[in-house]
Design a protein around this nucleic acid. Structure first.
Lengths: 260, 260
DNA sequence: CGGATCGTTGATACTTGTCAAAGTACGTGG
DNA sequence: CCACGTACTTTGACAAGTATCAACGATCCG
């Protein structure tokens, strides 16, 4: 049972995208009739493992993910990688470059990627007579901020198990929003990368996955994840850190809650 | 020895701000001559403890902090507060409201505050012929995102001591950027609020402050903080979690590094 | 068939949360 | 002005969670 419905599959053929299509990806609901559709955006493809942009590089473009899966990370002075996000379809990349005209982070493809290129300066100037574009650009940027804040907020003070449960649920919701299966998907990143993102060691990631699987909340087959009990996962992700019981008790207690 | 130079002091008298002044606060370097200066922005004052906006409230304005000190937080379903930022002068508030037209977070004044009101929809439409405004607005929003990401990145996988050291250094840098003393300032928030922000308990905050003080890296007098050894603090904030020595060894080792 | 990267599992030690209690600042009302 | 209550802070003893270290298993690729 492979998660063949996961993103990064078809629709890799496009090489140009109209403004209207771009707005829909940015979150626009109903297609407008009168929109300026003469403007087209180039695409850029990168293969697995390649870098889209690096920290310090001068900022020129925003990128909207059309297909594929990436990681966004920070390399500190000692060379340690700290992952801040895993962008996927419809996510906007490169916002971190606007403020100082050079990118702060590094974006690397975890699968083959097809990205819509948005030349920022040109576009913002040229499209100011197209208010909807501006509006959705603002919204997309704001959404990134909200997501960062809420993930930051929730990562701390939650146990490793809770954070991992939350991570799996959030991934599931993102897949669902894109029209893919929300219960069965492929992790496109290594355990190491999950650990970097969630702020825990690779061993802890592994142990927590095992624990969740033993409690029959998920099924783990290498990077293939099946969510078996989303309700329990949701409950788990809200448990504050450190209850009086150990892991097994916690989960069996959870089981009871669910049966009731 | 009180930190009388800390922000939130003078300059509380203004009630209107020109576009040019606003751009300078947003980070503009050299004043332009030809800028449209006829536009003026209203101010809003709130007293200590009052709420500027709450989660869920419909979004209308961005606010630029002119003076004072606030906290930005998230109240979860169980009523726990999770603080995501402590905005101060020149910080932009309310960005979290753009994406869904209602605020996601709650903003509360920690001191008396004087805020410049930016009616978002009106202003973005009306000022699109003023490219510099747009540009600096984008920059400010991007800067918020970068700050969120980097703080998120650094909070995890660092020890409580390191996070607290980082917190104190970052505060110091923000005060310095505003022209205030970078070595002596007043914490405007409780230990509880620091703990919520850094993802640790109030007891841990207290113990770490004591430890840093005993190592003579800082001086603590209630909420009055003096940084005695910034170099050591900077070193400490980059130490990865969990070395083989205990806290005291860590600091004395640090001391040696510094003496050398 | 190696070699390398990735993932799992176990034993141990350290950090930090939890619980409990006492100390300090601050404002209100007598 | 002092007593008192409340909120804030500090400190200690203990327990729980997770990092570290080490070894092994699995998968992938040349």
């Amino acid at each position: 049972m492979t998660a063949s419905l996961a993103p990064h599959s078809v629709e890799n053929s496009l090489t140009k995208t109209s403004l209207e299509q771009l707005l829909v990806l940015l979150g626009k609901q109903k297609p407008s009739v009168t929109e300026n559709n003469s403007i087209e955006f180039e695409h850029r493809r990168i293969v697995t493992g390649k870098t889209l942009y690096s920290s310090g590089e001068s900022f020129e473009n925003l990128y909207l993910v059309f297909s594929g899966f990436l990681k966004l990370s920070n390399i500190d002075a000692e060379g340690n990688e700290r992952i801040t996000d895993f962008p996927m379809k419809s996510d906007l990349l490169g916002i971190d470059g606007i403020c100082e005209q050079h990118y702060h982070l590094q974006a690397v493809a975890l699968t083959e990627c097809n990205l819509i290129v948005i030349p920022f300066r040109k576009v913002v100037c040229a499209l100011q007579e197209t208010p909807t574009f501006e509006e959705y650009l603002y919204r997309a940027i704001s959404r990134s901020l909200v997501r960062e804040q809420s993930s930051k907020t929730l990562m701390n003070l939650l146990s490793a198990e809770a954070r991992l449960a939350r991570f799996l649920i959030l991934l599931s919701e993102r897949y669902e929003a894109l029209g893919f299966s929300s219960t069965c998907y492929i992790l496109r990143m290594t355990r190491q990368e999950i650990g970097s993102y969630l702020g825990m060691t690779i061993e802890t990631v592994s142990r927590c996955l095992t624990a969740l699987a033993q409690a029959a909340l998920i099924k783990v087959e290498q990077r293939n994840i099946t969510l078996l009990n989303k309700r329990a996962l949701r409950t788990l992700q809200r448990l504050p850190l450190l209850h009086k019981n150990n892991g097994k008790d916690k989960i069996s207690k959870l089981e009871k809650q669910i049966i009731v």
